[in-house]
Amino acid sequence: MKRLQRIAMLCLLIASAAWAQSNLEINTPAISQIRSTMQSRHAQLAPYYASGAVGLTADGGVALRDATAVPLAQRPAVQGLIAQENADRASLYREIARANGHPEWEADIRSTFAQRWIERAQAGWYIQSGGAWNKK
């Protein structure tokens, strides 16, 4: 009976190790903080994605694509939003790599996110590929 219990324990251990491998840790306080800041900023950025003023870059960030689509008075604000968004995204990629014990994964995480942001972008948003902007 005791042996069975031990075997069951080992199975549990192996299963949890396998589970940990198929899921990345994204629930640390630092990551949650960045996620909620980015979520609230998105309400401000969304109209600029839709108008084509701001687009998604190939390296997992955002950039000003067409400054003329933004009224002159609003340009500094938009540039501020873009800078904050890129800083948050950089911290997000770094924190996920760190939370999973592999800081060297940061670049891989960034390129995975870059693909997924683009894949899940709404139709009509602009996406950068090979230096050129394309409308999705």
């Binding site: 491998q21 198929s22 899921n23 990345l24 994204i26 996620r35 980015m38 979520q39 998105h42 997000l92 996920i96 592999h102 994964w105 891989d108 995480i109 995975t112 996110f113 693909q115 997924r116 942001w117 899940r120």
Partner: peptide, 21 residues
């Protein structure tokens, strides 16, 4: 080795939240 599939899943979960998809 970098767990690409797990990273995609994590990215999708975060994007869902940020973009309110």
């Amino acid at each position: 080795y970098f767990p690409a599939a797990a990273a995609e899943k994590a990215a999708d979960r975060i994007i869902d939240g940020v973009w309110q998809l």
